[in-house]
Design a protein around this nucleic acid. Structure first.
Lengths: 151, 151
DNA sequence: CAGCATCAGTTCCCTCAGGGAACCCCGGTT
DNA sequence: AACCGGGGTTCCCTGAGGGAACTGATGCTG
């Protein structure tokens, strides 16, 4: 949890930050996505404090982004992405794309993405869901929406 | 700065978090994007502590995401997005899109986006830059890239 | 069946980052 | 000369993150 509660703001960016804005949360999702699904695996891979990992996992489960699932008759669980969580991974892909472009340096990007549909190594691009043309920060106007008045 | 330094990890998500992963940074970028470009405006709109706002702005300028620009003969500046920063706004759009879908509730999204190209209210969609087909979390394989070995 | 290992946390303390308020500096205005 | 307003700085206090030790439930081993 942040000191300041973003969830109350009438802004979908702030609300999203309330779900995955704390330090570590995006990296936890990344790890779950690539197959580190258990507490010990996450802790070892990330080097995160166990206390904080517990807090983050509980929060992500509470928010419906991850699901806790037993995988043994012993009290053992793994964490898996829900549909809501899987769609957050899209955000991670865009984040990775920006980092690949601006921060990777000499040696190039640490991972590559192969698109199932065309079989090629590729990157994500943002398109308008309506017309299919490119849709970036300078290609849009912002208008107040129906939820604008809610505080 | 986080306690843990993400910038050292061989992961573009972690590196991106090193730039805008601290609390407030995405909201600062959002505000600059929509036109709150001055210290006092940002402080008033966000309700952020002045100390932290100073730190965040310096960090974002250091990272080449924002540019500090004088707008008066007095020592007054405004902050504007660089090219690098403008591309980060794409990330904010995806973040907002997710929040609109999963967190907006009854009253609907607080803001709408009108796409210049088609003039319609729309949302961003992720496509493969290579073939143009939909490209989401489950549509790709992850492979090690050239920068994978760097620690 | 005692002892040990493993996973998944929980508890403890310590440090340091965020919040809040007061203060400062600098140029311009009256 | 006194005041103002933008853009910070400085101070203290609280609370979140880090680290390491401890716990509890279950299964495996001798």
């Amino acid at each position: 949890m942040q000191r300041t509660d973003y969830g109350k703001m009438a802004c979908s960016i702030a609300r999203t930050l309330d779900v995955i804005g704390e330090p570590w949360s995006p990296l936890i999702l990344r790890d779950v996505w690539v197959g580190f699904t258990r507490f010990e695996q996450l802790q070892a891979d990330l080097g995160i404090s166990r206390k904080v990992l517990t807090e983050r996992l509980n929060h992500l489960v509470d928010q419906g982004v991850l699901e806790r699932r037993p995988y043994d008759r012993r009290p053992r669980h793994e964490y898996v992405l829900t549909g809501k969580g899987t769609e957050l991974v899209d955000l991670l892909m865009v984040m990775a794309g920006w980092g690949d472009k601006w921060l990777a340096g000499e040696s190039g990007p640490p991972v590559l993405y192969r698109h199932h549909a065309c079989g090629e190594i590729s990157v994500v691009d943002l398109r308008c869901a309506h017309c299919g043309e490119s849709m970036h920060a300078n290609d849009i106007d912002i208008l107040p929406g129906p939820g604008a008045a809610v505080r």
